[in-house]
């Protein structure tokens, strides 16, 4: 069934009207000018549920040009249902070329991962963000968290990390690991595994973050300092696996655990399907 085929004709390029896109681009300019700062924007309702990437979709729609090549991933994979659904949406309402090859894409919309292959200058990575406020689970009030950001009252973030170490001997945050952007704003990198945090630091590509339900957007411009919060004597570290990817043999990628039978058998494979595939092709 084609949900959009008949209705499509009535919609503007990339679904949103030009006024809305301009409004979002103005917000993005502000976000780039103040790295890590959450810019409120007049988020629109999208024909997909909140929490399913409406923020990322609005950002993608606003920066997408007719000649751009788009890649959409969810959990690092191009073929997960939500990635398929979002890619199909933009194929229909924007008619742009899509790809699964990271290197060929101009705009990459992602949920929960950063591709393994380093991004280059000129590429834009758009993150879908559920809760943009890194202080939210310490302070539920938006009024208060805005003030905390304005006053750089970030001591409480380290209270959480301290507590982790006191309790577990480690910092127990494994994804959505808070970062400090350009030495100023504490920022939520979206629920990427902390494995991906180092890729944010001094990256060549522009990184945009959109939270549709919360109506906030923010950015990490190219070549920006991004530090993961930690202690001097308990420095930030990323996940490691004891075995390589069972398919391509990579030892430096984020691995998904796949259960292979009902007797506890399992294997580990790259979560970035495009990266895994291209490595396999190289070997072959």
């Amino acid at each position: 069934m084609n949900d959009y085929s008949d209705a499509t004709t009535g919609y503007n390029f990339a679904y949103l009207d030009e006024q809305t896109k301009r409004m979002i681009r103005r917000g993005l300019l502000k976000a780039v000018a103040i790295p890590g700062y959450q810019v409120p924007f007049g988020g629109r309702e999208m024909p997909m549920p909140y929490g399913w990437g409406t923020g990322g979709m609005q950002l993608t729609a606003s920066v997408l040009g007719q000649d751009d090549v788009l890649k959409v991933i969810d959990q690092g994979a191009d073929d997960t249902t939500n990635a398929v659904s979002i890619r199909a949406f933009f194929e229909r309402v924007a008619g742009v070329t899509t790809t699964s090859a990271t290197a060929e894409a101009d705009v990459i919309q992602t949920r929960h991962r950063i591709p393994e292959q380093p991004l280059r200058q000129g590429q834009i990575l758009v993150f879908q963000v559920p809760i943009p406020e890194p202080l939210r689970f310490i302070e539920p009030s938006e009024e208060e968290t805005r003030l905390m950001h304005a006053l750089e009252e970030y001591g409480v973030m380290h209270v959480k990390l301290y507590e982790d170490i006191a309790r577990h001997g480690h910092i127990a945050t494994t994804y959505a690991y808070p970062v400090k952007v350009d030495g100023r704003y504490v920022t939520d990198p979206s629920p990427i595994p902390k494995f991906d945090n180092p890729k944010l630091h001094m990256a060549e590509a522009l990184m945009l973050f959109g939270a549709g339900r919360e109506k906030r957007l923010y950015a990490i411009p190219p070549y920006t300092r991004v530090e993961s919060l930690d202690f001097e004597d308990h420095p930030f570290e990323v996940q490691q696996w004891e075995e390589p990817c069972a398919i391509c043999g990579a030892r430096d990628t984020f691995l998904d655990e796949v259960i292979t039978d009902d007797r506890g058998g399992r294997m580990f494979v790259c979560s970035d399907t495009d990266y895994c595939q291209s490595r396999r092709e190289e070997v072959a």
């Binding site: 549920p49 909140y50 929490g51 399913w52 409406t54 969810d74 959990q75 690092g76 997960t80 249902t81 939500n82 949920r111 929960h112 991962r113 559920p130 577990h168 001997g169 480690h170 127990a172 494994t174 994804y175 959505a176 629920p191 990427i192 595994p193 902390k194 494995f195 339900r213 996940q239 696996w241 984020f254 691995l255 998904d256 655990e257 979560s271």
Partner: peptide
């Protein structure tokens, strides 16, 4: 908004879950 955010729990979260698994095993 609320229905959307509750329903998004149905989307795959296996990358984050994997991160938690790894930590939990270590602990």
């Amino acid at each position: 908004e609320s229905a959307g955010f509750v329903s998004h729990l149905k989307l795959p979260h296996y990358v984050d879950f994997q991160s938690e698994l790894e930590l939990l095993r270590r602990l």
